[in-house]
Amino acid sequence: MNIIKTENLCKDFGELKVLKDCSLEVAQGEVVCIIGPSGAGKSTFLRSLNRLEKITSGKIWLNDILIDDRKHGVNKVQMPKKEKEALLLDMGMVFQRFNLFPHLTVLENVMLAPVEVKGMKKEEAKEIAKELIAKVGLASKENVFPSKLSGGQQQRVAIARALAMQPKVMLFDEPTSALDPELVGEVLQVMKDLAKEGMTMLVVTHEMGFAKEVADRVVFMYQGEILEVAPPEKIFSNPEHERTRTFLQSVLNA
């Protein structure tokens, strides 16, 4: 079963083609890392899955249900809004810049969406939130405001916040790019734990070590295209494309 499937995803910003016919399938339990030089369209690809960007044309399936079939920006799929929103809730998203709600404490950040969006009872949401916060190792910081946390801690809270909606797949948009080098490890550790538990993950990253260790497949994107999809052993040792090779050389030698 594919949790996410895309076919010929295209996205134009006027003349500029940001995504060109991107097709990808992500099976349940799979960890897929997307790598590539900046400006390759990695983030746009991830964000268009979550409706943060509108695609120009192409098809998107979630849980094998077609939710987007666009041509010239018009969606041909007729689906009740509620049903579509419920499907989109299966995707949790973690941003490069954390985007925690600064006016709420850690606990409130994690609780808010389950209570407000899912209509969960406060007590129940609180319990789940506490569990998740403990899971990312911040049990002692429950009642602290995000501004009092380090970047790594904030990102871990952001992960807990996304998990609180009990998604089937987690999208990570360069989760460690905004962090000080010494804080990257703690976030990656949480993500590794998550992968071990069998969470389906789609990760845009520059952490080649993480991709090598955790990913089931690695996607290499270049100038809006998916050039190569292969298991990490293959892509890191013997990539098919010359572009992939030069990119990896420049990244790994840096």
Binding site: N50, R51, L52, E85, L88, L89, M91, G92, M93, F95, R97, N99, L100, F101, P102, H103, L112, A113, E116, V117, K118, R161, A162, M165
Partner: peptide, 25 residues
């Protein structure tokens, strides 16, 4: 802008995003 995006990704409607997240800030 990230606040709107985070809210959208968590499934908040426009009205709830405003009421619970944006306006209090």
């Amino acid at each position: 802008k990230g606040q709107f995006e985070a809210a959208k990704a968590l499934g908040f409607s426009y009205a709830k995003t405003m009421r619970k997240i944006i306006i209090p800030q």
